[in-house]
C-alpha cells in the first residue's frame, strides 16, 4: 500500500516539474544562427547575436512585417534542430550543397563565398601536397567536407565545434593550415591582430559557393523569404547592410 502512495504522489510531481516542455504556438518566425562566425554572426558582450546574417534576418522580417526572433545554436546542431522544429529557419552563412538539400530546403542565395586556405606568413605551402601537415576546419562545413574528400589519409585533419576554436589552434601552432570560407577569414585577418602573422595561401576556390537560408522541406516560408529577399535587394536595404561589413559587394 505504501508504494501506491509514493507512486501516485511522485507521478503528479514529475508531471508538474516537466511542464517546462510546453506546447508553443508557431506565430513567431524563429531564425537560428551560430554566433561564432564573425562578422556574419557572433555574440556581443551583452549576449545578443549580431552580424551580417542577423541584420539580414531582421531586414527580411521588417519586409515581411513578421514577428521574429533570432536564437543561437551550435553549428552541428543547426540542421538537426531545424528538422525537429527547434526553429523555423537557419540564417548562419550556410552553403547550399546537394547533401544539405536532401534534408532541408534553401532560399535563393543571399550572398556567395568561396573557400581559401590560410597559413603562416612567409611559410611556403604546396597546396597540392599537404601530406603530413595538420589541417583544421570547422566540423560539418563545406571546408571540412572538401578536406575529407581530398586529403583524408594524407594530411592530418582536425575538425572543430566552431571557427573560433580553429583560429585559436592556428595561433597556438597546433594547426599548420586552415581551410575556411574566404570572407570571415578576411575579416579575421583584419580585426584579430594576427594579420601580420598569417596570410591567405593560394586563390579562393569553389567561388560558386552560394549561401542561403535553410527551412524545413516543403515549408511555405521559403517563398515568403525569397520574395522579401528580392525586395530588400531592390530597395537598397541589402546594399546598406553589405557596406556595413565589407567594402565590396558579396552578393
Amino acid at each position: 500500500m505504501k508504494l501506491k502512495t509514493i507512486i501516485m504522489g511522485s507521478a503528479l510531481f514529475v508531471g508538474a516539474a516537466l511542464t517546462g516542455a510546453s506546447a508553443q504556438a508557431a506565430d513567431k518566425i524563429r531564425f537560428a544562427t551560430e554566433g561564432a562566425w564573425a562578422p556574419f554572426n557572433y555574440i556581443d558582450s551583452s549576449g545578443k547575436p549580431q552580424g551580417f546574417d542577423v541584420d539580414i534576418a531582421h531586414a527580411l522580417c521588417a519586409q515581411m512585417k513578421a514577428d521574429c526572433e533570432v536564437v543561437t545554436q551550435d553549428w552541428d546542431g543547426l540542421i538537426p534542430g531545424l528538422k525537429v522544429r527547434k526553429f523555423d529557419a537557419i540564417i548562419a552563412s550556410m552553403s547550399i550543397t546537394p547533401e544539405r538539400e536532401k534534408v532541408v530546403d534553401f532560399t535563393n542565395k543571399y550572398y556567395s563565398g568561396g573557400l581559401r586556405f590560410l597559413g603562416r606568413t612567409g611559410e611556403k605551402v604546396d597546396l597540392k601536397h599537404l601530406d603530413g601537415k595538420t589541417i583544421g576546419a570547422q566540423r560539418a562545413t563545406l571546408g571540412a567536407q572538401y578536406l575529407e574528400d581530398n586529403y583524408a589519409g594524407k594530411a592530418k585533419l582536425k575538425f572543430y565545434d566552431n571557427q573560433d576554436n580553429v583560429y585559436l589552434d592556428l595561433v597556438s601552432g597546433r594547426l599548420d593550415v586552415v581551410l575556411s570560407d574566404e570572407l570571415p577569414t578576411y575579416n579575421w585577418l583584419k580585426t584579430s591582430g594576427n594579420g601580420d602573422k598569417f596570410e591567405f595561401k593560394g586563390a579562393a576556390f569553389m567561388k560558386n559557393d552560394n549561401i542561403g537560408i535553410a527551412v524545413r522541406k516543403g515549408d511555405k516560408l521559403k517563398d515568403k523569404l525569397n520574395e522579401a529577399l528580392k525586395e530588400i535587394l531592390a530597395n537598397g536595404t541589402y546594399q546598406k547592410i553589405n557596406a556595413k561589413y565589407f567594402p565590396f559587394s558579396i552578393y
Binding site: 516539474a17 516537466l18 517546462g20 516542455a21 510546453s22 506546447a23 508553443q24 504556438a25 522544429r85 527547434k86
Partner: peptide, 17 residues
C-alpha cells in the same frame, strides 16, 4: 498535432533529472 517544444533548459532538466 501541435508542435511540442523542448528547449535546451527542458532537455537539460530531463536528462540530468
Amino acid at each position: 498535432d501541435e508542435y511540442i517544444e523542448i528547449g535546451a533548459f527542458a532537455a537539460g532538466v530531463t536528462a540530468l533529472g
